[in-house]
Design a protein around this nucleic acid. Structure first.
Lengths: 178, 178
DNA sequence: TCATATAGTGAGTAATCACTCACAAAAGTA
DNA sequence: TACTTTTGTGAGTGATTACTCACTATATGA
């Protein structure tokens, strides 16, 4: 990737994350990135191609996340790690997660494959723990994870985050109770 | 509201909910609603005015929800009622909640006032129960509610829903543990 | 019944949209 | 050096955008 190519991707990611894919014009991206509009289409074919390039980079980061969780020894640890994922998202990764969450609500663009690896980890963990309904348990954990991520991404004050994690950890007993 | 006015609002709500506000043109709304495009602007001034009209109708429904919860006797019951709110959303209310959730991720349009009453109920309930950190506890409950709503709105198979609620309730005794 | 207000139409408008293309600059290769 | 490939430009394109307006149809009220 050339420097200008990277500049396009970064700028587009930030704009898409804050305003939504459809609200951002290629003209605006080019201006903010300091490149000609034509360059976007040379490198990414069309606007959707640019989005896909962004999503692929993000999906690779999620895959790395998944690998790190997969290493953990017990299923309990894996579940806890996923549930606490939202607390370990770094500020510079916020735009990608914001974009991903925003796209979820638009049938046209959302692609579930990026987050699928995480679901598989949890479902397998519950099976390994001999839960009778691992799928439903997985849904509950992922719902909570999703809600926590939403709260953190949209508010994002450091103090709240630490307090939130502390209080969450007190409740692990009931979260994992069969 | 005239019949055509209502037709515009209903059609726009469905389209906005499925495709996102920016991805839907006033032309498309008019066509699907079976009215002239000009009529949209006569009644709602502009596209944003149409969105505001939709949101106001939704906010009134949320206010009704809030009142019903407010009646409940104990703070524990109120918290449970809010947590289970996602399970009691009727199918015909899905579009509004989808729209609301989608808009959350776009700085330009989101207005938090619609859901504020619900937060107030929970925070007061935790205070009445003498929790030391009612704000954080509220954040956790609302995060879970939000995640559950997301899961239900985006998948929405009746079987999953019942199973999900059943499993959630098993864990419920522990939720109020300080 | 007639006047007035409201509801509804559809062709028209300037601005913006995603995208193209002929061309120039830069980088790579021999 | 000389040739090829890649990177980058910016004016230009037709289509679509939100929105206007002169006009007609319908309803309301005295």
């Amino acid at each position: 990737m050339t420097e200008k190519q990277l500049q396009i991707v970064e700028t587009a990611l930030h704009l898409f994350a804050e305003m939504g894919f459809d609200a951002v014009s290629t003209n605006k991206i080019a201006q903010e990135a300091g490149v000609s509009e034509g360059l976007i289409f040379r490198h990414f074919q069309n606007k959707l191609g640019l989005l896909n390039a962004i999503m692929q980079i993000g999906a690779e980061k999620i895959a790395l996340f998944s690998e790190q969780i997969e290493i953990l020894a017990t299923p309990e640890e894996k579940i806890q790690a996923v549930l606490e994922l939202p607390f370990h998202i770094k500020e510079d990764e916020y735009p990608f997660w914001k974009l991903l969450n925003g796209l979820k609500w638009q049938n046209q663009y959302y692609d579930q494959t990026a987050v699928a690896p995480i679901r598989n980890i949890i479902e397998k963990a519950f099976k390994d723990m001999n839960y009778s309904n691992p799928t439903t348990e997985t849904d509950l954990i992922l719902a909570y994870t999703d809600g926590l991520a939403t709260s953190i991404l949209l508010k994002s004050t450091e103090v709240d985050k630490n307090e939130l994690l502390k209080t969450l950890r007190k409740k692990y007993n009931w979260i994992l109770k069969k």
